[in-house]
Simulated assay, not measured.
Amino acid sequence: MTATAALVAATPALAQDGPPPSSTPASTLAADLDKDTITVAVAGAYLTDYEGSNDYRFVPAPAVQATISGYNIQVLGNRASVDLIRDRPGPVWDLQAGPIGVINFNRQNNKNIDDRRIRALGERNTAIELGGFVGIGKTGVITSDYDKLSATLSYRHDVNNAHDSDIWQPTVAYFTPLNVKTAVGLFVSAERAGGGYARSYYSIDGTQSLASGLAVYNARGGWKNWSVGLAGTYSLTGDLLHGWKAIGGVNYRRMLNDFADSPVVSVAGSRGQWLAAAGIGYTF
């Protein structure tokens, strides 16, 4: 669900950057940029059965994004984070740092997996991944004083002994308001996972091979995937900082190295996967 969270995160986050001051309504909105806002959204996401699958299903993807006294709080599907460095309004540099937590449901329930070969490999325990992130952003880069370019690096470790491993994730994102009602965002990301993650989800031992028909495989840690996504939001009532809005986006993920070469992906799944999400949110 990491990609799902990224898509749902992108669109409510755009409301925090605000619109260009090119008209009287926009100028009024500019005065609201340092005020507290909360965006609540729910989307339907179309994503793969498991990480590396070529089968798809629909899942709900709720999201809450809040800016309170300059601090950003996100609860996005299976992911939560808090930026403990206070933001300042205007075209400024923005330092970011804080805790992050992810509940990883990958292959946790065979009822959600169509491929009988993957079901035969057995279910995995739910992974609780806790860690932190650091980053830097710049508001007022290309299109106006309100677009934003940011780069972050997050680290998570499974504390539930599901895969007992680390995940590093660098992300670069660019968000820009097009007017007082519309904003778009583009992001690229990658993940590097440890050996425990590779063994838990992508290795196949002799017993599993006999049960599934997939070849024995010993996966090693390393760069797991890269992804690129596009997201947008359009205000149905009010503007980017107030009222109802439609949200949506699309993401492409490409598996890499031992993760891509595993029969879990190369035989039973696909090295490339698409994800799409669409929904509605309200900002107040």
Rank of each mutant, 00 (worst) to 15 (best):
K111M: 13
R156I: 11
A80I: 08
N109I: 09
V102Y: 13
L153A: 07
G137M: 08
V102H: 12
F175S: 14
N106A: 09
L76E: 01
A66K: 05
V92K: 10
L130H: 04
A80F: 10
Y155W: 13
R124P: 07
G90N: 07
N160F: 12
R119N: 05
L84D: 00
L149N: 08
E123V: 01
R86H: 01
R86I: 05
E123K: 01
P60Q: 08
D115F: 02
V172E: 00
F105D: 14
I142L: 14
A120R: 07
I73V: 13
D83R: 03
L121V: 05
L95R: 09
R124K: 14
Q108E: 15
D147M: 05
N110T: 11
G137S: 00
N78R: 12
S144T: 08
Y71T: 11
G122P: 06
D115W: 04
I118A: 03
K111A: 15
I100Y: 10
A63S: 07
W93P: 05
Y174F: 05
V92L: 10
R57T: 11
N160T: 14
S150D: 11
Q96N: 06
D83T: 01
A61P: 03
L76F: 00
G90K: 03
N78T: 14
Q169T: 07
R124Y: 07
T152V: 08
G98K: 05
T143L: 13
A162M: 00
G122E: 01
I128Q: 14
T152F: 02
I68Q: 10
T143Y: 13
D115I: 03
V141H: 06
V172P: 02
I167A: 04
V75L: 13
S150R: 12
Y174G: 01
I136L: 12
Q108I: 12
N161T: 12
P177G: 01
V134D: 02
A120L: 05
D87I: 02
I128K: 13
S81N: 08
G101Q: 09
T152N: 10
L95P: 13
L153V: 07
R88A: 12
I103A: 14
I167M: 10
Y174I: 04
P99L: 05
I136V: 14
A151Q: 06
R119G: 00
E129D: 06
I68H: 14
G70M: 10
H163D: 06
S154H: 08
P91D: 02
Y71L: 11
N112Y: 15
R107L: 06
T126P: 07
P60K: 10
D166N: 10
I85G: 03
D166P: 02
I85P: 04
R86E: 01
Y146A: 11
L76A: 07
D147K: 00
S69Y: 14
R79E: 13
L95Q: 06
A97D: 02
G132F: 03
I128A: 13
S69K: 15
N104D: 15
V59I: 14
P99A: 02
V141K: 04
D94G: 11
S154R: 11
R117E: 05
Q108M: 12
